[in-house]
Design a protein around this nucleic acid. Sequence first.
DNA 1: CGACGGCAGTAACCTGGGTTACAAAGAGCT
DNA 2: AGCTCTTTGTAACCCAGGTTACTGCCGTCG
Lengths: 210, 210
Amino acid sequence: MLKELKDNYGYIFEDELIAEINQVGTFKEVPEGFKFIEIGDYVKSMPLLVSGAIKILREDENGDELLLYFLERGDTCAMTMACCIGHKKSEIRAVAETPTKLVMIPIRKMEEWMAKYPSWRSFVLESYQSRMNEMLETIDSIAFMKMDQRLLRYLRDKAKVTGDDTIHATHQQIAYDLHTSRVVVSRLLKALEKEGKIELHRNHLKIIDL
Amino acid sequence: MLKELKDNYGYIFEDELIAEINQVGTFKEVPEGFKFIEIGDYVKSMPLLVSGAIKILREDENGDELLLYFLERGDTCAMTMACCIGHKKSEIRAVAETPTKLVMIPIRKMEEWMAKYPSWRSFVLESYQSRMNEMLETIDSIAFMKMDQRLLRYLRDKAKVTGDDTIHATHQQIAYDLHTSRVVVSRLLKALEKEGKIELHRNHLKIIDL
DNA sequence: CGACGGCAGTAACCTGGGTTACAAAGAGCT
DNA sequence: AGCTCTTTGTAACCCAGGTTACTGCCGTCG
């Protein structure tokens, strides 16, 4: 675990802090689709992502879903920190988008380190900042963009976090993430294919040029 | 200023911190409609709200607006802190919704106090948390709710922050906040009036029962 | 092999809400 | 009072996208 920590966090955290993380953290490796957090869960530890990607979803009382953003290597989940600190239930769901490696830190330490390590403080604060900005972008996209634009953005983001220009997902799954219907996704994807931007296949699609 | 600070923040901050705030903070009193922050501004101090309310807006490149949330007494602007820390341009606009009193803190101090005062740390973290939750609620409302529901929520929120069940705004102004058109707002408000939930007048409306 | 279940394509239809246009009702000004 | 500007009410129309329904397709399993 120490190597992973140094490789991914060595340039932001002091050696001493890295050593502490190595001591108290738990290394975890989970497969794609693994559900870290469900809405309503109490969270007792925060994740530091080492590799892979996690998607953060919001859900309303009718079970309608919406993708908020992806977390990648070097990220942590600000929503989770927020929950930890307030000892509240989680407002979101977190699911592994790809096979993922991460280190779990007990909340107790998280607060202790805030006092002790300046690098930890700025890491936590910067995480909040980037997550807020991603929320803003999400708001932009649902408030100001039409579905075709949102779909494009989604495909680009998904290709980026998976590091693969083939998107492995059914139209229905895409529809859930964008909170729309399967028919609409099929319609728009077909239009993109006609424009030569993607190639459609069963259970996956290939990005040609977005 | 000391009295205002003690009244509004005395129960969360140590006396020593209150004293420091009193020393380095600048007291400000602004009228309704005062624009604190414009999108693209660099922000060099963070606000502690003493009384009144501030609305936080997002805008896209076409100038289309959307209300994100209101800040009230005891709140601070997490978006602003985020900007300060990252030395980034503001992503949002902040406008006084009512006449407002607040204390401005230089960013420099904000970082210093993070190390020094546990109460300041939890205040900052809790602010982030509550702002994230408000962003989530905003996302819920634009993603999952229809316009009539959103309008109801808006009227309730606005009545709450102004402490007045008469809403002083034209239909056009409401339309801007909700990012819709004046005609739609008039249509829905008229429907609410027919249900006996509000009373419509020129330049204002009265909430009867929401 | 045939049957069955998940997936994608497509057409027909519906609806919320955005757009345009115009009339009428305050409200301030001279 | 008359004039003008702002605000509101309403009708007619349009469109993105949600809904329903049915088809053909592939893959898997018995």
